[in-house]
Computed example of a mutant assay.
Amino acid sequence: MRSGVPLRPETGSRRRFGRALVLALMASAPGPSEVMGQEPLSFERYRETVEPIFLADRGGWGPGRAPCVTCHAEQGTPLRLQRLRETDEGEVFWSEEDSRRNFEVVSRLVMPGDPDRSRFLRKALTVAAGGAPFHVGGKFFESKSDPEWQTMADWVAAADPVERPAPPRLDFDFFRDCVQRVFLDKRPGDVECIHCHESGARGFARHIPEGRDFWDQQESRGNFAIARRYVEPGEPMMSRLLTHPLAPNAGGDYFHGGPRRWASMDDPEWQMLAAWVRGETPECIVGTRAGAGGG
């Protein structure tokens, strides 16, 4: 004791302070998914090393052979690139502003710090090497050892890990009862979606067996499995199911083999589909008619 005051409370206070300091240091230390010294996705590195891959000559045309930009600057895919500019000498390029817009789009398809979970890297990679099951444009990379794939992976791996919120769930029941009715509806002067989409890889409106005028549960599941390839949950304007039949001057794709069903995004039917893509279950509107299937 000193001056009649015991030392133990002072010692306890020091211990509490020491424990608090240790806990504070632990809280500020990088966790297992964080790496000290990393940076956000680099635009400069993207423009210098990744963007040129979109222009690389693949030796031909068609899936797996055409340059990435051939489809991705013309179609409403999630990887929607800006259209190329051209010099007087015929050389194509993107301006810095174009590249920044491309960078924003690509960044949404990346899990920073984790190449293997990045959709951007998995779509064109073969399934045997860990790639996605389906890519309309074909497969360009046989393995992760491909120099181009490694270039993109290094760019992603150099960034700070960032967890993205899970996308909304697409409501199958609404698809079955309402969205499929759009495929059968005929607008004046146009053919129905089913006219072109009842077979093949893009057959999201398969042929209905004779004696019936609508799909059963199993057939609807099959249509849904294909249609969802052309939907980006939460992103109507990144969903080809909505941008392909939309007029180009309203934000639709530059090319669609079939008719343009919607002249603008104000079309009630387009708005209904956009709400479904955002994870909602709106009132069912087919053509100009409201009906069952939502609410």
Rank of each mutant, 00 (worst) to 15 (best):
F183W: 04
K139Y: 15
F93I: 03
G138Y: 10
V22C: 03
V156T: 04
P248I: 03
M237N: 09
D213G: 12
Y46P: 00
G18E: 12
T281M: 00
P67G: 10
D116P: 01
G287E: 04
T77A: 15
V110P: 04
P233M: 08
P209D: 07
F183A: 07
S199Q: 15
E10I: 14
L125W: 06
L21C: 03
L25F: 11
T87H: 08
P248H: 05
R45I: 14
P32Q: 10
T49V: 10
V127C: 00
G287R: 04
F43Q: 09
Q150H: 00
E39W: 11
R80V: 00
T87W: 06
A250N: 07
A263Q: 11
L170S: 08
R176L: 07
P6L: 06
R289Q: 14
R117S: 09
H207R: 15
T87Q: 05
D88V: 12
P78A: 03
F183C: 01
S28M: 11
G189M: 07
S28A: 14
V156P: 02
A247Q: 13
R80F: 00
V5Q: 15
S3W: 06
P245T: 01
G59I: 03
P78K: 04
G222N: 07
D185N: 13
R85T: 06
D154V: 00
L184T: 05
R19I: 11
E10H: 14
D216A: 08
E198S: 14
F54Y: 11
S107Q: 05
W149A: 09
P133Y: 07
S145P: 00
